[in-house]
Simulated assay, not measured.
Amino acid sequence: MSRQRSMESILSSEFVSIGELVRLTDSRYSTLKFYTEEGMLPFEQAEENLTRRYNREETVTRILLIKKMKADGLSIPQIKEALNMDT
């Protein structure tokens, strides 16, 4: 298992892993994996080890928006529609 990066290192990086997004947004890993599989969180595939890399600023903003919409009572299909996605 790889060693975790420091929060300072994460905050200075353009791209982060899903595990680092968990730490940044206080979200569950399974929730972020679901959002990724539903196409709600865009990512890039790193060629060297096939890991998904997320743009830190863009993805954290999107996760916080999704959390707010969920708190406001929107369903996943409604959130996807609000994010201008096909449901």
Rank of each mutant, 00 (worst) to 15 (best):
Q4W: 02
Q4L: 13
R5P: 01
S6M: 08
M7Y: 06
M7G: 00
M7C: 00
E8N: 15
E8G: 15
S9C: 10
I10N: 14
I10G: 13
I10D: 12
L11W: 01
L11K: 13
S12E: 14
S12F: 06
E14I: 03
E14Y: 03
F15R: 08
V16E: 02
V16R: 01
S17L: 08
S17K: 06
I18K: 01
E20V: 03
E20R: 03
E20W: 01
E20A: 05
L21Y: 06
V22L: 01
V22R: 05
V22K: 11
L24Q: 07
L24I: 11
T25G: 05
T25V: 01
D26Y: 08
R28E: 14
Y29D: 02
Y29K: 09
S30F: 13
S30Y: 13
T31D: 08
T31I: 01
L32K: 04
L32M: 12
K33L: 15
F34M: 15
Y35D: 09
T36I: 01
E37Q: 10
E38P: 00
E38C: 04
G39M: 06
G39R: 04
M40N: 02
L41G: 03
L41C: 07
P42T: 06
P42G: 04
F43M: 04
E44S: 08
E44T: 09
Q45M: 15
A46P: 00
A46E: 14
E47V: 09
E47T: 06
E48R: 10
E48A: 13
E48H: 12
E48N: 10
N49E: 05
N49Y: 12
T51W: 07
T51Q: 10
R52Y: 11
R53W: 13
R53M: 13
Y54K: 02
Y54I: 08
R56Q: 13
E57I: 07
E57H: 06
E57W: 02
E58S: 14
E58A: 14
E58D: 12
T59W: 05
T59H: 08
V60M: 03
T61Y: 07
R62K: 15
R62A: 11
I63M: 06
I63P: 02
L64H: 15
L65S: 12
L65C: 12
L65V: 02
L65I: 05
I66R: 00
I66T: 02
K67C: 07
K67L: 05
K68S: 11
K68W: 00
K68Y: 03
K70F: 08
K70Y: 00
K70M: 13
K70Q: 15
A71S: 13
A71C: 04
G73W: 02
